[in-house]
């Protein structure tokens, strides 16, 4: 979707978040573009050296409980292969490189868990977690892109709120799983996460 709504959002996002603290553009955007346009292996090597260890760290957190570490290595390769293959679908108006690679790692992880659990696959992960090409435009929330806000506010979160965010986003745990692990009522976990999100200017009504 390339409506005017989206390109406005894109420039807004760049102004807010794509640029680094000093207004420098995200250097990894250019690297992804070169991989997409010229299958540039030297640039891809740079991306790999930077992102593969982070991907492995993320996947290790999510799978450490039930699988050995060589699996994280294998899946990291899988994620980077997708980065190579999908580089031309990267849209800087929709996501930063960090967010884009995070979603690929997230989807690879859940896809792996599913395939391991059951053989029959009636629906692909990509059919559920997709960039909706819906005719309904994304609403311009006050801060649609919140990376600047996140950067500034994350450090000031009380420990108990930072902890639940860490468990949800990096350890890939659901509200229920967090509640069980921390021996807290589900409602407490929900309100802690909601409170933390509101400090990052993500204001969800309920």
């Amino acid at each position: 979707m390339t409506s005017s709504d989206d390109s406005t959002a894109g420039s807004l996002r760049k102004a807010l978040a794509g640029a680094g603290p000093l207004g420098a553009p995200d250097p990894w955007e250019a690297a992804i573009r070169k991989v997409a346009q010229h299958q540039d292996r030297a640039e891809f090597k740079k991306l790999f050296d930077h992102y593969a260890p982070m991907i492995k760290a993320f996947l290790s957190k999510g799978i450490s409980s039930y699988a050995d570490r060589s699996l994280a290595e294998e899946m990291t390769q899988e994620v980077m292969l997708k980065v190579w293959n999908k580089a031309d679908s990267f849209n800087p108006a929709k996501a930063s490189v960090n967010t884009w690679i995070f979603t690929i790692a997230r989807n690879t992880r859940i896809d792996f868990i599913r395939r391991n659990g059951r053989a029959d696959r009636t629906i692909d992960i990509e059919d559920i977690w997709h960039e909706a090409d819906s005719p309904e435009p994304v609403v311009e929330l006050q801060q649609r892109r919140v990376e600047t806000m996140i950067r500034n506010a994350m450090a000031t979160l009380p420990e108990e709120q930072a902890l639940v965010l860490e468990k949800a986003f990096m350890e890939s745990k659901s509200h229920n799983e967090i509640a069980e692990e921390l021996a807290l009522p589900l409602g407490t976990v929900k309100s802690r996460i909601r409170l933390a999100l509101s400090k990052l200017q993500i204001l969800i009504d309920r």
């Binding site: 982070m54 996501a95 967010t99 609403v139 929330l141 993500i202 969800i204």
Partner: peptide, 23 residues
């Protein structure tokens, strides 16, 4: 959808600050 994008950005932000694990 905008909220999910924001939430995914939180994930992207935390992801970028993970302690890297050598491959």
């Amino acid at each position: 959808r905008a909220h999910v994008q924001q939430l995914t950005d939180v994930g992207g932000h935390m992801f970028a600050r993970l302690q890297p694990e050598a491959v």
